[in-house]
Nucleic acid binder design. Structure first.
Lengths: 188, 188
DNA sequence: TGCAGGTTTCAATTAAAATTGAAACGGTGG
DNA sequence: CCACCGTTTCAATTTTAATTGAAACCTGCA
């Protein structure tokens, strides 16, 4: 499976050593490491997703570890994150059903595949990251409003007016976000 | 090191010192530090914008520095970022027009105000961050496609099919993004 | 019960940002 | 030309986040 590796001299891959990756895999991995950093996730998460995206067959833990030259810790953590985001799924349904039908069954490793449907990815991103964020902000806005009320006597009425209008603007943003985002999630 | 932060004797304010801020200001600042970290910008940028958002009158460099207890460097860098994002503007139009009509004019400091219109903020965020990002990704996708073509002989035709379909899916994402985002920008 | 992969945990380490502060840079009025 | 004020620059530092690797933890099997 490995194309002739070890680029050796010539083009030293600079930032991304990509030791065990084909050029194609390396390119795709780069696409996703970049995307993932835009989203504020660790690079390793992008590498793992990128590798799975660039690979037709499912991969197991150990292959990911080897091809990307990552530690077990990173792979474990990265797979967990991607699983939680719904960006990867086990290739084999959880079935135990077939029974213990062979002698050479060692507890086989989970084989992972990338979820490549944009709607699913965006959907869970919204659900997992934006929605909790908005919840947090709602709390904060409430607190801010109360602080403003408490401060009232200390402000000129002109300032108060302005600040009130800004706060209400913020609340509008919030409201818009918390109605629009779930909607988008549904629409995808 | 420090497993436990070792509270020791210091009465130094802990995580959120907010030394010179009213409770209201502190709350609003928190809202924006959080938002800004979601966007992958430095915290200080959120603090500065939050302070300006929470203040009815324009503020000058020195006041920001003092109220947020930031270094000159951070304030300068933060103001620059916010300016570039179109999130703040000078309160006083750049006018020199009136002429040098007074004797007590020291080179006055720029007074900054927050831009509070969501559409403007989102618009420039799209323009300044997402659009350049998409440009970069376009490049990468091209490279990836070429790599795949180059690798063709090394792949089973089944794998090749799958990878080609994934790539084209990626390209679709890209295309959608690069048409939809500018559109959104306009619509705001 | 013991063993053998496979995976997770978590303190220590390393890498990556962000922040600082001192020095340099205008530009303006004296 | 000089001295001053507001601002920017940038190397050094600090802070924060990601990565590592060894040990613990399953779980099914013999």
């Amino acid at each position: 499976m490995s194309t002739t590796p070890s680029i050796s001299a010539g083009q030293t891959a600079p930032v991304t050593p990509s030791p065990q990756l084909t050029p194609f895999e390396a390119q795709v991995v780069e696409v996703f490491t970049d995307l993932v950093q835009l989203l504020g996730l660790p690079k390793s998460v992008g590498e793992i997703y990128g590798l799975l995206f660039a690979t037709a067959e499912p991969l197991v833990f150990a292959e990911i570890e080897r091809k990307l030259d990552l530690s077990k810790g990173s792979v474990s953590q990265g797979l967990r994150t991607l699983r939680e985001l719904g960006a990867i799924i086990p290739a084999d349904p959880e079935l135990d059903l077939g029974g213990t039908h062979s002698g050479l069954e060692t507890p086989r490793a989970t084989r992972w595949v990338a979820v490549v449907e944009l709607r699913r990815l965006l959907g869970s991103l919204l659900r997992e990251r934006l929605v909790p964020y908005i919840k947090r902000q709602d709390q904060r806005m409430l607190a801010a409003t109360q602080s403003l009320i408490a401060a009232e006597p200390d402000l000129t009425s002109a300032s108060l007016k302005i600040l009130q209008s800004r706060l209400s603007k913020l609340e509008t943003w919030q409201a818009r976000a918390s109605t629009v985002l779930p909607l988008i999630g549904k629409m995808l």
